[in-house]
């Protein structure tokens, strides 16, 4: 068991999958000679060469399309988009093509691509580098969307995504790349479906994904000191949603807080509340509460930025409210 940073875990998954299958390639801006903006592909250009670690021009829609076309002919491209904001440029090839090709060909063609991209608010990067957009991808049939919260999932889900025959979007987070965690020395594949109970509790379920799981875990510590037992549920996959695990947790705690870094409108929390209403409405003892980003473009100024995104205290306050302690 080795402790490593999130970016190192991603790099290791690339390395193993590139070594395992000559059809695996990586492509993206600055991923080769420059080693990747977050070092997730560092050293791989030297090891695997320019034909497999492909530095692309700044042409997100078309290099994504090239990855898609290559995947239709048997390749396994791992496409890096430097920021999820830039993924908007690739929506045509991603959503109009990759997500629909298996279906509209009647299952005769498929697009086994992986798209990795950090989505989240980091350090004063302002409106055009701080979008989350998870809610947009999770609404698209034909895609899988996963949100690894730690190095183990970042490593094991990327490996599974490369092997899987569906297009998979992996949403990472700029504030998680240096986060450390344990990853086994032996090869591990982590499933692309299934929520995970990260911490057991009995009074309230705190639901998060990606970076917001860490807000929930810190909030659970604080709540514990206040005598509130919080269960923390990591969604792990935003598409498809693991309805069973959500239902079981809500039936146990009867109270729910959803922490999302996205804006609330037509969002992850809205979807989760719908799932709860459909699955186990009568198990609820209180109205679910969403902790979410402010409904504005993310501002540059440090205090405005802090006010725009949810933090641990917001989750604690929401949890106290649903358990009737506010």
């Amino acid at each position: 068991m080795a402790e490593m940073a999130y970016w190192e875990a991603i790099r290791r998954a690339h390395d193993e999958e590139l070594a395992n299958d000559p059809m695996v390639i990586a492509m993206g801006e600055d991923i080769g000679v420059a080693g990747g903006t977050y070092k997730a592909t560092s050293g791989l250009y030297q090891k695997y060469g320019a034909a497999r670690i492909i530095d692309t021009p700044i042409s997100e829609n078309s290099y994504t399309g090239i990855g898609i076309g290559a995947s239709m002919a048997g390749m396994r491209p791992i496409i890096e988009i430097m920021s999820i904001n830039f993924a908007l440029l690739a929506l045509d090839t991603l959503i109009n093509a990759a997500a629909k090709i298996r279906y509209m060909s009647g299952g005769r063609a498929s697009c086994p691509i992986v798209m990795r991209t950090p989505g989240g608010t980091a350090h004063q990067l302002a409106a055009q580098h701080s979008a989350r957009l998870a809610r947009m991808f999770m609404s698209t049939p034909g895609l899988r969307v996963v949100t690894p919260r730690n190095p183990l999932d970042a490593y094991g889900m990327l490996k599974s995504a490369v092997r899987c025959n569906d297009p998979v979007i992996i949403i990472e987070h700029e504030s998680m790349y240096n986060m450390r965690g344990e990853v086994p020395d032996n090869e591990v594949f982590r499933p692309l479906e299934g929520a995970e109970i990260v911490r057991a509790g009995s009074d309230v379920t705190l639901i998060g994904y990606n970076y917001s799981v860490h807000l929930c875990l810190s909030a659970a510590d604080k709540l514990s000191a206040m005598g509130v037992s919080a269960e923390v549920l990591d969604l792990r996959a935003l598409r498809p949603i693991d309805r069973d695990t959500i239902r079981r947790s809500v039936e146990k705690t009867h109270n729910v807080v959803i922490a999302e870094e996205d804006e609330a409108t037509v969002g992850v929390g809205a979807e989760i509340i719908s799932v709860i209403v459909e699955e186990c409405f009568f198990a609820l003892d209180s109205q679910p509460v969403r902790v979410h980003a402010a409904d504005v473009p993310v501002p540059y100024n440090r205090s405005l930025e802090k006010a725009a995104i949810p933090d641990v205290d917001d989750v604690v306050a929401a949890a106290l409210k649903v358990v009737g302690r506010a």
Partner: peptide
Amino acid sequence: QYCLEEPPDPRWIGPLVPGERHG
């Protein structure tokens, strides 16, 4: 039918078994 690969390959897709290390 044909939205995603069917049947899903349990090696990559899951289910996630609590406490189990895959691989």
